[in-house]
Simulated scan of single mutants.
Amino acid sequence: MTVKQIEKLKTPKFIQQIESTLKPMEFLARCAKNYGELFFTNSFGDLETLVVSHPQDLQELFNPTNKILDAPGAANEIFKPQLGENSLIVQDGERHQRQRKLMMPPFHGEQMLNYGQQICEITQQAIR
C-alpha cells in the first residue's frame, strides 16, 4: 500500500457534528473535495473517524495480507444495543471474516444487477 498523508479536518468539532447531522452527504462531499479521498473527522461523537472515499483504499486497509486494519468491531461497540451482539458490524477478527464470507455471495456479480433492476422497478411503481 502506498503511504498517504491523511489530514484532519480543521473545522471545530461541534461545527463538524452540526454539519454532518443536518446535511451529511453535502458535508462528506465538501470534506472529500477539500481534504482528499482519506481524512479524519470528529463529526461522529467523540471518536476520531477515518473517512475513506475510494473503494481501493478501503480494500487495501482491510486486506488480510497487509494487516493494516482489522474489522472495527471494538470501535463499533456503541451500536451493540441497537444491532445486537451478533451483528457483523460489532464483530472483529476471525468471527467477522467467517460471517462476512457467509453473507457475501448475494452481493456479487449478476445478483447485484438483479437488485438494481428490482430497485428501478419498485421506484417506477412508487412514482406511478
Rank of each mutant, 00 (worst) to 15 (best):
N114A: 12
Q91V: 02
G73R: 11
F27V: 06
P64A: 05
Q117I: 15
L38A: 08
L47Q: 14
Q56K: 12
K23Y: 13
L113D: 15
M103Q: 09
P72H: 05
L28P: 03
L69F: 15
R100V: 00
G84A: 07
F14D: 10
T41Q: 04
P106W: 01
E85K: 13
H54A: 11
Q56F: 10
Q56I: 14
I89N: 02
F79D: 03
V90R: 01
E77G: 05
L102C: 07
K23G: 01
F40C: 07
D70I: 10
P64S: 05
F39E: 07
G109I: 08
D57S: 06
F39C: 09
P72A: 02
R100F: 06
Q16K: 08
A74P: 00
T49R: 07
D46G: 14
L28T: 01
G73L: 11
I18Y: 09
V51G: 01
L83G: 01
D57Q: 06
Q111I: 13
T11G: 05
K80V: 10
M103T: 04
P55Y: 06
Q16C: 09
N42F: 02
Q16R: 10
P12L: 08
N86G: 14
N63G: 01
G116H: 12
V51Q: 01
T41F: 04
N34W: 00
T41D: 03
N66C: 02
N86D: 15
F107L: 15
F62V: 02
A75W: 11
S43Q: 02
G73V: 10
F39P: 09
N114M: 13
V52P: 00
L102Q: 12
G109C: 07
T11E: 09
K13Y: 01
D92Q: 13
S20C: 14
M103H: 04
M25W: 10
E110T: 12
F62N: 03
S53A: 14
L50G: 06
T11H: 04
L50Q: 03
I15M: 11
E85A: 13
V90D: 01
F62L: 15
P81G: 04
F14C: 09
H108C: 12
T49Y: 02
K67L: 02
I18F: 14
R98L: 12
F107W: 04
Q117T: 13
L102P: 00
L28I: 13
T49N: 06
D57I: 03
P72R: 04
P64K: 05
D70V: 08
F14R: 11
F40M: 10
G116D: 12
S20T: 08
G116C: 12
L50K: 06
N42W: 09
P55V: 00
E77H: 06
I15T: 08
E19Y: 09
F39M: 09
F62C: 03
Q99G: 07
R95D: 13
P106D: 01
D46R: 15
D92L: 02
K13D: 06
P64E: 03
L28E: 07
T41N: 04
L22C: 09
L22I: 14
L88T: 07
S53T: 10
I18E: 00
E60W: 01
L58C: 14
F79L: 14
I78G: 00
C31P: 00
G45T: 04
Q91M: 15
T49H: 05
Y115K: 10
G36K: 03
N76E: 01
R30S: 13
M104H: 05
